[in-house]
Amino acid sequence: MFGSFIKKSRAKSPWIMHFDCGSCNGCDIEVLACLTPLYDVERFGIINVGNPKHADVLLVTGTVNHRNKKVLKNIYDQMPEPKAVIAIGACGNTGGVFRDAYNVVGGIDKVIPVDVYVPGCPAKPEAIIDGVVVGLGKFAQKVEEAE
């Protein structure tokens, strides 16, 4: 019984960690907008934590470059399983408008595995919330597979 409560709770308490991996700040503002009274993601138990060790979902905005790819990897590694990664915005998905820049590696998935891609430039708050919800589904699926 407790096991099923835990399983149920996973979907009800996704703590997110937001990492700005070199975004133009457009996507970041949209992520933060999700926390405002208008969108109020805390309704779904979502909390924006500042520490990978407390996080379930990693939200990454912006392109990866050669300098911060190690940081991204490190933060991902410090998250305890089960975890999900959501790439936000055109930059996070593919490198976006910066993809040809000399120092850019590309999208997030060049460095860490991504579960959900949220498109847009910037991505809309509704889309981000949607992405998190889809991410939670994936994450439940992953747990099931692991078991």
């Binding site: 407790f2 409560f5 835990i6 149920k8 709770s9 996973r10 009800k12 308490s13 703590w15 009274p37 109020d40 805390e42 309704r43 779904f44 138990g45 379930d56």
Partner: peptide, 16 residues
Amino acid sequence: SRQGPPIMQSFYDVAK
């Protein structure tokens, strides 16, 4: 002026 999480939220958090 937000709606906020369900009352049971802390239990979900800890169980998770």
